[in-house]
């Protein structure tokens, strides 16, 4: 009982500072300390949220951005996972592809935007391509690393006990690589949103980034701030989801033990 009260206290303490900042911000905006042309009051952002929610513009754009993010993530993540597993399990495949992949990795994927616009225009493919490329590397690198760092003593043990190659992979190698793969997943989710924001801001005709850029043209600062906050919320949501999954899958790991 006492413990649960304490943990509630902990949670509350974490939110005190953001609440205070919001309050100060609101006060500063109301008293004219911060001009509405620079930063709108939180209440103004909230009313913009309500207005756009009712008009359906906000849900529509969030949906579009989310679908783009997830589709790009699915494509890039699947390819990254495939090469990560392949190169982790086969030295031959690693010798053939790893150098190439590492070279491509050193190109900042956002530097490709001009080229991508020339190739795909500002259609969906451009965004999918950029997100997929951005997501690919953290997933690939961390999957490969996870497999390469598998305890050879455990693999030897599995062999001695007559595990088949499939059993060895499913029971020894994959679970051993999982912590590293989750690290890759969380990195990838961060890169996913970042890439999407940039791509939508520069070249799009719908989505959250587009909404923000339109609002800028009309000096609708409340909408601009709203878009930024929603990006932050979506990013946090994705990360929380990944952490939840991590805790579920890695219960055996002392670092993730609950209770």
């Amino acid at each position: 009982m006492r413990k649960s009260l304490q943990s509630v206290g902990h949670d509350v303490i974490g939110w005190l500072l953001p609440a205070a900042i919001l309050l100060l911000w609101e006060l500063a905006a109301r008293t004219g300390l911060i001009s509405a042309d620079v930063l709108p009051a939180p209440s103004a952002v909230l009313s913009a949220f309500w207005r756009l929610l009712l008009s359906g513009e906000l849900p529509h754009n969030i949906a579009i951005s989310t679908v783009r993010a997830l589709a790009g993530f699915a494509i890039g993540g699947a390819i990254g996972l495939f090469f990560g597993l392949l190169n982790g399990l086969s030295g031959m495949a690693r010798n053939v592809t790893d150098t190439t992949l590492q070279m491509v990795r050193n190109i900042p994927h956002l530097a490709l935007i001009p080229l991508v616009i020339l190739w795909f225009g500002i259609d969906e493919e451009a965004k999918l391509f950029l997100v997929a490329l951005g997501v690919f590397f953290p997933i690939y690198v961390n999957t490969l690393l996870g497999i390469q760092n598998c305890d050879p003593q455990l693999i030897e043990m599995g062999r001695v006990y007559g595990m088949s190659r499939t059993a060895l992979f499913l029971r020894v190698i994959l679970p051993g690589a999982l912590p590293s793969m989750f690290t890759g997943l969380r990195y990838a989710l961060g890169i996913m949103w970042l890439t999407l924001i940039v791509a939508e801001t520069i070249a799009a005709s719908s989505g959250l980034g587009y909404m923000a850029m339109q609002a800028r043209e009309f000096m609708l600062l409340d909408v601009v701030v709203l878009s930024i906050l929603i990006y932050a919320l979506l990013g946090k949501l994705a990360d929380s989801l990944a952490r939840f999954l991590e805790r579920q899958c890695l219960q055996w790991h002392p670092a993730f033990r609950t209770a």
Binding site: L154, E156, M157, G162, M163, V172, H253
Partner: peptide
């Protein structure tokens, strides 16, 4: 070293001895 699978509970680890 014991070489137990850290991601399997104790019972599951003993079952590894019955693989196949």
């Amino acid at each position: 070293e014991p070489r137990l699978l850290p991601w399997n509970r104790v019972g599951r680890n003993v079952e590894v001895g019955l693989t196949g």
